[in-house]
Design a protein around this nucleic acid. Structure first.
Lengths: 245, 245
DNA sequence: TAGTGGTCTAGACCACGAT
DNA sequence: TCGTGGTCTAGACCACTAC
């Protein structure tokens, strides 16, 4: 009949509740959990709403649904480590690790016209100035990531060193009210360059893990191209994939 | 998971059609496309069905939806290269590249009791034998990937060298009728080991890109743990991420 | 205020797996 | 055959954005 979205959508609340039940062993791993109709009755919602909650849990890899069989609770993932970073995450490093743990040292902060390469990556014209930023991100005193970033000036007015030293993401969201639409990321390995050697203390034989990234806003404009260089022994990226056929 | 009705589900057909319209510029990039009600009328389906098609296109990064605004068509992704491998893909290498291009050379094919590490990764007991496989994957005559794989024997009866030389995935699906539930993948960089040097011709200073992977079946059992070593100059992995907070 | 996408319902039929 | 999850509908209200 009527429903209120005072806070969260029902399917999100149900998702949370079911996740708790899985973690607490109320729905044990490797067993079937109650069927959608039963859950719909229990939560007093329609089956579509239950299904939406389960779809999300399935896409996180917590459950597996199969038509004709039921919904299976999956176990924990053995190669998952606490220090792994999901390859699909939107919060900045500051938000991931906590502001008190992360320091940022500005190596380069400049404005220039974009090279052809950067024009293509940001989808802008050659007369559209961009910030060029190189930041060293330091976790608890340890050099962790060297970030090379390009952003169109017109999309990010008022960027300054103070902001770069704290959280750019916060500035974009809180102050400029910008919203991210999505990101495309590419992960690869590479040899250390002179920046890596100087700032990440990489030796010639130390592999680097590089995350290249284009982020676009909800209006479709590209706001950032960045290449993050990680020490190979400090970081890895993870992806969960759910079979869809 | 899915349908396989005699015909495809409506939302899949609509997804295809809209994708075509985007690629053909009928719905131009960086502009709003028709709203959901209009599309529902045009395709003669309910709005929920249109929404489901759009949800999928959004998760692929082709469009961006915003409540109150409309649905925006996004452009192409500048750092996307033809040789990139999606980090979330299920088909084996043979299926990705075509059977005629890929050769597999078996370096190790053995059966043993699992180490503690492998027991944990496959979630099995110590008396449950596993295959240990090392395969060199060769693309058009060029050594590409060195795969170290472990699989429980009881889940994969009848595995042999002939199968290893063609496609294991095909054997699992076609012959054993197994279905994958999902996978967890971890990507990192590392230094070359003696296998990499011998079979991938890696020099001491060549970084390796490693993809570690656990695959589980739709019954929740882990069927495979593998670590794939790639030459850094031959391969990178990609992820698309869509903001949906 | 008008119009968008997001959520939700109650009920229907279908394909699939197990019995 | 029965019960499961998957799809689909027709219509409703909500939250957000732009005007």
């Amino acid at each position: 009949m009527i429903f209120i979205m005072a806070t969260k959508a029902k399917y999100l609340l149900i998702e949370e509740e079911i996740r708790k039940r899985i973690l607490n062993g109320i729905y044990p791993a490797r067993e079937l959990m109650p069927d959608q109709n039963t859950l719909a009755q229990e939560f007093n919602v329609s089956r579509m709403t239950i299904k939406k909650a389960l779809d999300r849990l399935a896409s996180l890899g917590l459950i597996y649904k199969q038509s004709g069989l039921g919904t299976l609770v999956l176990g924990n993932i053995p190669i998952k480590a606490a220090e792994d970073s999901p390859a699909n995450a939107f919060d900045g490093l500051t938000e991931q690790q906590g502001a008190e743990k992360i320091q940022s040292k500005i190596i380069v902060f400049d404005v220039k016209f974009p090279s052809e390469d950067i024009q293509k990556k940001l989808d802008i014209q050659k007369d559209c100035p961009v910030y060029e930023i190189v930041r060293l991100r330091i976790l608890e005193g340890d050099p962790l990531i060297l970030e090379h970033t390009y952003m169109p000036v017109e999309l990010v007015p008022g960027l300054n060193e103070k902001i770069l030293e704290s959280s750019v993401y916060e500035y974009l969201h809180q102050n400029l009210k910008l919203k991210f639409g999505g990101a495309y990321r590419k992960i690869r390995a590479g040899v250390p360059d002179k920046f890596d050697k100087k700032y990440l203390n990489a030796r010639d034989t130390d592999p680097m893990l590089e995350l290249e990234e284009i982020i676009w806003l909800n209006n479709g404009k590209n706001i950032e191209y960045s290449a993050s260089r990680n020490r190979y022994d400090k970081r890895s990226y993870t992806v969960i994939d759910v079979n869809d056929f």
